[in-house]
Design a protein around this nucleic acid. Structure first.
Length: 201
DNA sequence: TGCACGATAATCT
DNA sequence: GATTATCGTGCAA
């Protein structure tokens, strides 16, 4: 049985890029009505201040307002008519920025995740931001949730049995603006990381 | 293993 | 009306 401690807001860096790196190897936990689903965060991307690829770049709108909440809040958006994606806000209140969670290495509740992603092998259950949200049952109702407060969706400290990650860095995936900036972070050698093989260094 | 491509709808211009 | 921080399929090699 895994036992996680909730991360306190004080422990999170107040800087989107630092937070993206910090979150590799931490836990994401969803205590759903059907039971707990959790996993080790193995891939993130930073979308911070002054970044033309960030949803927050052009200021606050009804869609992106959660990115302007104090660091440690969830920003959930819907994309391509099909998928949800989960971000963690990364700046002080009123300053926009967020970390896109791209992949998890499933720990608890893989059976529950599999129910939402039938047929997926374990290493592809929560591989890619859309799949991650689907597997964990994350949707618009989680937009604006405080991930450091008591609630069903939260960030956890690493399980003590987990080895500390070796962290790799690369350009981000699926964007055209600011495409050259190395703002993607991932755990080296973890099979659950998404994206082309060429980006695995 | 590595691409090209279509599905699909909210959001913004 | 254009754009999009995606994914799964299909086809080539």
């Amino acid at each position: 049985m895994h036992r996680y401690r909730r991360l306190r807001r004080k422990e999170l860096p107040i800087d989107t890029r630092e937070l993206a790196r910090f979150l590799i190897g931490k836990a994401l936990v969803h205590d759903s009505p059907n039971g707990r689903m959790s996993g080790r965060i193995v891939e993130t991307e930073a979308y911070g201040v002054g970044d033309a690829a960030a949803h927050s770049f052009r200021g606050m709108t009804p869609r992106n307002r959660s990115l302007f909440l104090e660091h440690g809040h969830a920003y959930v958006y819907f994309i391509y008519g099909t998928w949800f994606c989960l971000n963690v806000s990364g700046e002080a209140e009123g300053v926009g920025g967020g970390v896109l969670l791209r992949a998890l290495d499933p720990a608890e509740g893989a059976d529950l995740m599999l129910r939402r992603r039938p047929g997926a092998p374990l290493h592809k259950l929560a591989c890619g931001p859309g799949c991650l949200a689907t597997a964990l049952g994350i949707g618009k109702r989680h937009d604006g949730v405080d991930l450091c407060a008591p609630g069903e969706l939260w960030l956890g400290a690493p399980d003590r049995r987990w080895a500390p990650p070796s962290i790799g860095r690369s350009v981000r995936i699926g964007i055209t603006k600011e495409a050259h900036r190395p703002l993607r972070f991932f755990e080296r050698g973890n099979p659950c990381v998404s994206g082309p093989r060429g980006l695995l260094r």
